[in-house]
């Protein structure tokens, strides 16, 4: 329990750093560390497949995409944020912590949870037999993403002529 709390606190701290740090590279790396911690939490929750996806795809691939974008947009650091944003953050955070602590427990009792028994079968059976439509949708989403990126990086006709 203590290790879980430490991991969750680390996750929140690195996520907050990702938002508050001015240097975008450092922010992207903080986000990667947060993903890594989330992956470890998933491992400890007995969800190894989700953990592997979280670490390899989110901590790896998405961080690389972020760093690539930051490198391609060199003047991105020059955007000036309002000063009050960083000063007001701890105040709002403490306010939310209090509200979250007070409300969440009563909210959990009111959420109508479906009756759940112990699951049968393996992860593969659940993914391929129960969630088949999700897999089809995933293929559609990936295709849509690829087509969108291709369309966004399409060269103009004039560029081709040159």
């Amino acid at each position: 329990m203590a290790i879980q709390i430490i991991l969750l606190c680390g996750l929140v701290i690195f996520s907050a750093l990702a938002i508050l740090l001015k240097d975008l590279i450092k922010a992207a790396l903080s986000l990667a560390v947060a993903s890594l911690l989330l992956g470890i939490i998933f491992f400890r929750l007995a969800a190894p497949y989700a953990a592997v996806f979280e670490i390899s795809v989110v901590a790896g691939l998405i961080t690389v995409l972020f760093i690539l974008t930051i490198a391609l947009t060199k003047k991105g650091d020059e955007v000036t944020e309002a000063r009050l944003v960083k000063l007001a953050f701890p105040v709002f955070l403490i306010l939310f912590l209090v509200i979250d602590g007070l409300v969440m427990k009563s909210l959990l009792q009111k959420i109508p949870a479906l009756p759940a028994g112990p699951e049968a079968g393996t992860f593969g059976e659940v993914l391929w037999k129960q969630r088949t439509f999700d897999l089809v949708a995933q293929v559609g989403v990936i295709l849509a993403g690829v087509l969108a990126v291709l369309a966004l990086f399409r060269k103009k006709e004039e560029d081709k002529d040159e």
């Binding site: 998933f42 929750l45 007995a46 969800a47 497949y49 989700a50 996806f53 979280e54 795809v57 989110v58 759940a116 028994g117 112990p118 699951e119 079968g121 393996t122 992860f123 659940v126 993914l127 129960q130 969630r131 999700d134 949708a137 995933q138």
Partner: peptide, 14 residues
């Protein structure tokens, strides 16, 4: 006790 289903949803989400 629905960790297998939750994992498949998490993977779809990723």
């Amino acid at each position: 006790n629905n960790i297998l289903l939750a994992q498949s949803l998490a993977i779809t989400y990723v």
